[in-house]
Amino acid sequence: MKMRQSREDNIFSVVIAVMTCIFIVVILYPLWFVLVASFSGPVEVFAGRVWIWPVNFNIEAYRRIFMDGEVFVGYRNTIVYTILGTFVSIILTLSAAYPLSRKKLYGRNIIMGLFAFTMFFGGGLIPTYLIVKGAGLYNNLWVMILVGSLSVYNVIVARTFLQSTIVEEIYEASDVDGANDIKVFFTVVLPLSAPILAVLTLFYAVGFWNNYFTGLIYLRDRSRYPLQLYLREILVIDTADNVVETLEVDMNRVLVKESIKYGVIIVSSVPMLILYPFLQRFFVKGVMIGAIKG
């Protein structure tokens, strides 16, 4: 009886191992292939000779990307938008979450309702567009920083965190000491908020880094485009299927263009790929905090 059971469990372990391997290959292979293809000769990629390692190793695609320079305009813009945007977002989010986490806030439920309502009902694309444009934010670089810099969902996550971390007694004690709510925030709340600050920074920073919609709608000048909009031109608008079908072109030029695409994906993902192993545990923490509803 005991023997049969352990044999069954052994088979089970093998099945688990096989499924895990398949899963890892399915997730990583497309990304690995993009990396390998970016370092291979375009003709070799097209002929299907590139599988696991670069064939005809070269850095021609990267040389062209670096020479072009437009990608770096996008890079610089995105870095500025991401840093400033994240900074503004953190200030807005925390300055909303802190009072909303305080029991003594008079009218707390009404104010919370004011925030929560926006999660369920909004003006929609055009009314928002008209308001933002009316305020002179069209084609203004501040639009990239201000639009979407306050997520009510993140306010609720931060508020839940503060409520569960800082117990009422701490506030009572500070009250006895005669500290006002501003002082309490800076001396008590902020020092205890490191984990939530990390989580918010990461969520917002990734959001700003990956955002293309705001730029698509509100920016006209190419010189202000974030990286993602340049990527859109290279990766999405100019796809091989469109080019090949519309006109008979020099296949070689198409292939060089294709290899630039592989390179551009890598270049645009480098910061994320470098930081990812260090930061990923914070993302998970963020989901956990968000999952415990207040």
């Binding site: 990956n210 990527l231 994906i265």
Partner: peptide, 21 residues
């Protein structure tokens, strides 16, 4: 860790990868 990785790829890069592959 591997399983969350694709979640952080931007939509443009994802569609770019789809177009390429």
């Amino acid at each position: 860790t591997v399983s969350y990785l694709p979640h952080f790829i931007s939509i443009i890069v994802l569609v770019g990868i789809l177009n390429l592959l």
